[in-house]
Amino acid sequence: MAACLAVMSLAVFINVVLRYGFGSGVAASEELSRLLFVWMVFIGATAAYPLGEHMAFTSLLLPLRRRPRALLAMTLLIRASVLLACVLLAWGAWQQVVVGMESRSVVLGYSNALLPLPALLSALVIGLLALIQIFRGERLDLEHELEME
């Protein structure tokens, strides 16, 4: 993620300096920045999932703390929903990857399949992690409310 952000920032900075300082620019910097931004977002989303860093409304589950069966049922429902969302995202991303294989970006000429590919990979990894959490019976982390200011 840091490498994507560094390259993206450098490309945009150079392009801004060239446009406003010299009246020209690098057309490839926009395509490169867009591609790196998409990859950075999905790498970040994938890295955040196992740490429990995605947005969660744990306050809605706090009343279930003293009812372990209800909390387990809700945990399974949440993880199954994550798994379903990953399947839908992976299916749509795969279709876009297939369509993108036959076209190229305008300036840099990379395959347009590289844009939806991180969504596919992220969905597969997060879905696999959710499936592992279901089989292991891992509990939800309800301690996020302690981190709020």
Rank of each mutant, 00 (worst) to 15 (best):
A123R: 11
I78N: 10
E102Q: 13
L36P: 03
F57G: 03
I126S: 01
V107D: 15
L77E: 01
L71Y: 09
Q133G: 15
A48P: 05
I14N: 00
R69I: 03
L51F: 04
A6C: 09
R79C: 00
L83R: 04
E145V: 13
R139E: 14
R65S: 05
I43R: 00
L142P: 00
S29G: 07
E149G: 02
L89I: 15
M74L: 12
L131T: 13
F42M: 11
A90R: 07
M40D: 01
A70V: 08
E30L: 15
L128H: 06
L76S: 04
E138A: 12
L64P: 09
L72G: 04
L62D: 14
F37H: 02
L60Y: 10
S105Q: 11
L83G: 08
C4N: 11
E31T: 06
H144E: 09
L128T: 15
D141H: 12
G25F: 13
G25M: 06
V99D: 01
P63Q: 04
L124Q: 04
G127S: 08
A85V: 07
M8E: 11
P50S: 08
F42W: 13
V106E: 12
G23A: 11
G52Q: 03
A123M: 10
R104L: 07
L121V: 14
L121R: 03
L114P: 01
V82L: 10
L88K: 04
T75C: 03
P68A: 05
M8S: 11
R67E: 05
V98M: 11
F22G: 08
I126D: 02
G92V: 01
S29D: 09
S24W: 12
V106F: 10
M101E: 13
S122G: 04
F57Y: 09
A6Q: 02
V38I: 15
P68I: 05
L71W: 07
G137A: 10
A90N: 05
A90L: 08
H54Q: 09
L142Y: 01
R34C: 01
M74S: 14
S111W: 04
P118K: 09
L51E: 04
G100A: 08
G92P: 00
L5Y: 04
S24M: 13
G44M: 06
V12A: 07
H144N: 09
A85M: 13
A85H: 05
G100T: 08
V12I: 15
L64H: 11
M101C: 12
L115D: 03
G44V: 05
L89H: 07
V12L: 14
M40C: 11
S29I: 10
R67W: 05
L10W: 07
S9M: 15
W91Y: 11
V87C: 12
M101A: 14
P118D: 09
A123Q: 10
R19F: 03
